[in-house]
């Protein structure tokens, strides 16, 4: 990435115009967040007055209390956190083991099997969604964490991404370890994985965020507040408080806050994680 413009960088008229345009665009991007926050702090009469204002007066903090009393957002947080951490851990574990085999071990059928993996990369999740739903019901996993976690604990894409990266690590590294009598498992754990920090970090952010924000699958398999994640909980909340915009916006703020906070403080990692994984590791 090109470094920031050095202090004292040229500051010309063109740049000034560009800044004006970019600031205008930024206001547009931030407006929905501001509108959400403002509404979440208004009383219902303030909400339904014209013209609308971006500054709540008086500020009604109570909305947040009412929101968490109306819907167990704390529970949704825990559910989301549990699901996202489990899915991320399992996906990276299963995928890195498989990617190691594809990248480093020599076995019969390696290329053919990898092709089978790749072939399914293009199939949208929606094709497998209905059979997975039927399977989940058959296993009596409906509305349990198993249904939320297990089917998403495997990823062809992650295998592909990690295999590409592992292949870039010099073979001499593991051959040296093998000379010293290290088993394949030790090479995976103590040579390959430690050398894959950047791609693992990127993948972790990508998978975690994807799981945290996932909507369709959790919507289909959870049916009670005990298993609802943040997005599904928020959608359920909307179903029950259809026009209570002060509460709905407070709920949205609650839903967004943790991710946005982490994002603001770890912007670079987020952008890297999403772009690297989004680009398929190119």
């Amino acid at each position: 990435m090109r470094p920031e413009a050095a202090p004292g960088a040229t500051f010309n008229k063109g740049h000034l115009l560009l800044h004006a345009a970019l600031i205008l665009g930024s206001v547009g991007m931030l407006l929905p967040f501001g509108w959400m926050l403002a509404t979440s702090l208004k009383s219902p009469p303030q909400i339904f007055t014209y013209p609308p204002s971006l500054v709540p007066n008086p500020v009604v903090w109570r909305n947040y209390l009412d929101t968490v009393q109306a819907m167990p957002f704390g529970r949704f947080y825990l559910n989301s956190l549990f699901v996202a951490v489990s899915v991320t851990t399992l996906q990276i574990l299963t995928s890195s083991l498989a990617a190691f085999a594809f990248a480093r071990l020599r076995f019969r059928g390696r290329e053919a099997l990898f092709l089978v993996y790749l072939a399914t990369l293009m199939i949208p999740f929606h094709v497998t969604m209905i059979p997975n739903f039927i399977l989940v019901r058959y296993l009596r996993w409906f509305d349990t964490f198993y249904a939320l976690i297990v089917p998403t604990a495997f990823s062809v894409f992650a295998v592909f991404l990690l295999r590409q990266y592992f292949r870039g690590i010099p073979v001499e590294m593991d051959e040296a370890a093998r000379m010293d009598g290290a088993s394949s498992f030790r090479i995976w754990a103590q040579v390959i994985m430690p050398l894959s920090g950047p791609v693992l970090a990127a993948l972790t952010i990508f998978v975690f965020l994807g799981s945290w924000n996932d909507f369709l699958w959790p919507l289909v398999v959870s049916n009670s507040n005990a298993t609802r994640t943040i997005p599904v909980g928020l959608a359920t909340f909307r179903g029950q408080y259809n026009t209570d915009w002060h509460l709905l916006m407070a709920g949205s703020v609650i839903a967004l806050l943790p991710v946005l906070l982490v994002y603001v403080f770890a912007q670079k990692r987020f952008v890297e994680g999403i772009t690297l994984s989004g680009m398929g590791g190119r």
Binding site: R2, N213, L256, Q267
Partner: peptide, 27 residues
């Protein structure tokens, strides 16, 4: 264009990408 403030603009323009779609759609 090599201007100042790249990071802050990127922070703002990328923010919706990490946002939960349900909350975004509600707003």
């Amino acid at each position: 264009q090599g201007m100042r403030g790249l990071e802050i603009y990127r922070l703002i323009y990328f923010m919706p990408v990490v946002t939960t779609i349900v909350a975004a759609a509600l707003v």
